[in-house]
Structures are given as structure tokens and as C-alpha cells.
């Protein structure tokens, strides 16, 4: 459930560089070009890395793994931060 540093095997796809990848990010459809990593997604979201935590499917992807963790077509991603709460 917890991914330390390992990346998923990169799926090579001849058309991958131009075909957008379809993700669901925080419950909404989101497209990214090519074969993005979690790090690329955070950049596209303009998320502050120090204030973000990431769930891909059922896996918590830890910060050191973000830039190597390849997202896959159809992945459901949650990017969360802290809010006030009791």
C-alpha cells in the first residue's frame, strides 16, 4: 500500500509522447500529455509539493518517489493537503 521509492515499469508506447493520458484527479477528469509521473502531475496542478500528499489508486506514493512514479491510463489520483479539522 505504501510505495517507498520504486517506480512502476514504464510502458513504452510509440504514440505515447503525443497521446494524452486520461486520469481522474480529485474526482474530476484530467488529461496530461505523454507518459507523466506524479511529479509532472503536481507541476501541472501547480500543487505545492511540501504541502501535498498523493494517493494513486489505493497506494500512498511518498514524496521521494513522485518524480519516478509513472502514472497509467485511467489512474485515479488524489492530491490532498491539510485543512482545519477537529
Amino acid at each position: 500500500m505504501l510505495v517507498e521509492g520504486a517506480a512502476r515499469p514504464f510502458e513504452e508506447n510509440a504514440a505515447g509522447a503525443i497521446r494524452p493520458m486520461h486520469l481522474t484527479v480529485n474526482g474530476e477528469p484530467f488529461e496530461l500529455p505523454g507518459a507523466p509521473t506524479v511529479g509532472a502531475l503536481l507541476a501541472a496542478l501547480k500543487a505545492e509539493r511540501a504541502r501535498s500528499a498523493v494517493l494513486v489508486g489505493d497506494e500512498v506514493v511518498r514524496a521521494p518517489a513522485w518524480d519516478a512514479f509513472a502514472l497509467a491510463e485511467g489512474d485515479r489520483v488524489e492530491v490532498v493537503t491539510f485543512a482545519g479539522g477537529g
Binding site: N26, R51, A53, T81
Partner: peptide, 21 residues
């Protein structure tokens, strides 16, 4: 001090509570 999780908001700038806490 307790805190909660929420999804990041892409539409508007939000208060950062983690930094001050």
C-alpha cells in the same frame, strides 16, 4: 492539535495551515 485532510483546490489560493502550525 488536530488537523484534517482535504483535496487541494485548483481554482483559488487557499490558506496554508501546515506552515503556520
Amino acid at each position: 492539535v488536530t488537523v484534517a485532510l482535504r483535496r487541494i483546490n485548483r481554482e483559488r489560493l487557499e490558506d496554508d495551515i501546515l506552515g503556520p502550525l
